[in-house]
């Protein structure tokens, strides 16, 4: 059964994997859980979900995902990283000498809002989304600085909480924890038609 429908993978090592898959299905798209590096060859876009970045990183290294994920991005395949996914994609992590995947030109501060008691939800304006978007922050990171070709999609209290650089999308918040699929749609529209979505957003 061959069709032209794009397939979106969710890195299924740890975290809110099913929640993203539910969103993808709600948008009528095809989704799959990625647990082996070779599965990256079968997908058109990848979501790195929220979870514990140190735990996910540990499994990325141990199960040989590091280079395949970097190649996936180098081949201009779209990647969305939410929360832990943002930390994993960043080129620089504040107060840490090493980055994880080191793909996106952003400097990220982990647990930037404090501990769990400081976690919150708030409605935010996000570039490319009509109205406001319900944004859930859980021990969330934010972006301290961005490279010159990084587009800022959302800020909260002066800090960057969503951004995009070419094929890479990141958010501090968890769109998968709400019923609103608009943020994911920004990403999936880009997966479906990279050039078209480009002009809409920029």
């Amino acid at each position: 059964m061959q069709n032209n429908r794009k397939k979106i993978g969710i890195l299924g090592l740890q975290g809110a994997v099913q929640e993203h898959l539910n969103h993808i299905k709600a948008l009528g798209l095809e989704g799959t859980i990625v647990k082996k590096p070779e599965q990256l060859d079968e997908i058109d876009g990848l979501i790195i979900p929220g979870g514990e970045s140190t735990a996910i990183k540990n499994l990325i290294v141990r199960y040989g995902f590091l280079e395949p994920l970097q190649n996936f991005s180098k081949n201009d395949k779209p990647i969305l990283g939410t929360c832990a996914g943002m930390v994993l994609l960043a080129k620089e992590i504040a107060d840490s000498e090493e980055s994880h995947l080191g793909l996106m030109d952003i400097k990220v501060k982990r647990n930037a809002y404090g501990r769990q008691r400081d976690s919150f939800e708030v409605d935010l304006e996000v570039k490319g989304i009509q109205g406001t978007f319900p944004s859930v922050f859980i021990r969330a990171p934010y972006i301290e600085t961005v490279g010159s070709d990084v587009e800022i999609l959302a800020t909260y209290e002066g800090n960057i909480v969503a951004a995009r650089q070419g094929n890479l999308f990141v958010s501090s918040f968890h769109p998968e924890l709400t019923a609103d699929t608009k943020f994911l749609k920004l990403f999936t529209e880009f997966v479906n038609a990279p050039t078209e979505a480009n002009t809409v957003l920029l």
Partner: peptide, 12 residues
Amino acid sequence: VKRGMAQMQKGG
């Protein structure tokens, strides 16, 4: 926010 924190622990 509270339930979401536990969702982030899934599979761990």
